[in-house]
Write a protein that binds this DNA or RNA. Structure first.
Lengths: 140, 140
DNA sequence: CCCCTATTTAATTTTCGTCAAACATCCAGA
DNA sequence: TCTGGATGTTTGACGAAAATTAAATAGGGG
């Protein structure tokens, strides 16, 4: 079972490869706000665990296993981001909150939230109602 | 700023005192599924940081600061539990999920979720709709 | 070939917890 | 009364996960 930090790395690596075709140690470090030396160590572990193939100083590729997991993790991340945005959380707090909670929700919870998001998107009046509740809170 | 584990301890101590009038090291350990020796160490830190007053072998009391925080943390916990329950997460997954995410959401997100919960509670038809979406998922 | 940047390694830190042994408290029985 | 377990608590040594820092090393462009 991957640890939260392993998940973070796999997720970012997946999205970097999707966007730019490759993922260097320094890109990953940058994206995770972590030092390259930390990434090196993690990437070595991920290689050992079969999520990717790593050649030092050269680069890395996700194995099928790593790709499958990466895709799933990225979807989960995007869903949570969308959820917080829909209910009106401040944009500049969203990323950190998602980063914090994404590893700690069961897939059952994720699926329920996906349904909730779908419902909210299909009924703009619900979003209006939420918006109103939010504004009322300001005066208390 | 309290760490997640500090929050866990303060929250549990607050609710134990609320329920039974006092909180012994072994009660806290039991409630957190942790060994008493871990609790001792944490309680010493919480004393040093001004959240409670601790006399070894005797007991502890929350300071006003500790009480205020404890109350807030307990409310947050209950809210998240209620939220997951409302959207239909399996009962036996709820506690662990809440335990996992409660320390990682901004108060802004907590307030938005509180509004969402209020709205869901006031409109049972929304809950019906969610229930239906959940059941559809079973067939895919 | 040398230098600059990227990367790696090794030692250390922080947070959270375990385990075993020492210590304190309380209470029952001689 | 005092005493010796049983119970509860504390201490200190240790470990795992995740990150940092500083120093060593590798590779690519002038």
């Amino acid at each position: 079972m991957p640890t939260p930090s392993m998940e973070d790395h796999i997720e970012i690596i997946y999205s970097l490869i999707e966007q730019k075709g490759y993922a260097r140690v320094s890109d990953i470090a940058e994206a995770l706000s972590v030092l390259p030396s930390s990434v090196t160590k993690m990437v070595q572990k991920l290689d050992k665990d079969g999520y990717l193939i790593y050649e030092r100083y050269r680069g890395l590729v996700l194995t099928p296993r790593g790709q499958k997991l990466g895709k799933r993790l990225l979807k989960r991340h995007d869903l949570l981001e969308q959820f917080l945005r829909l209910i009106g959380v401040d944009e500049d707090l969203i990323y950190k909150d998602v980063e914090g909670i994404e590893h700690h929700l069961s897939w059952n919870s994720i699926n329920r939230i996906a349904d909730l998001v779908q419902m909210l998107e299909e009924n703009p009046d619900l979003l209006m109602k939420l918006e109103k509740l939010k504004n009322e809170q300001k005066e208390s």
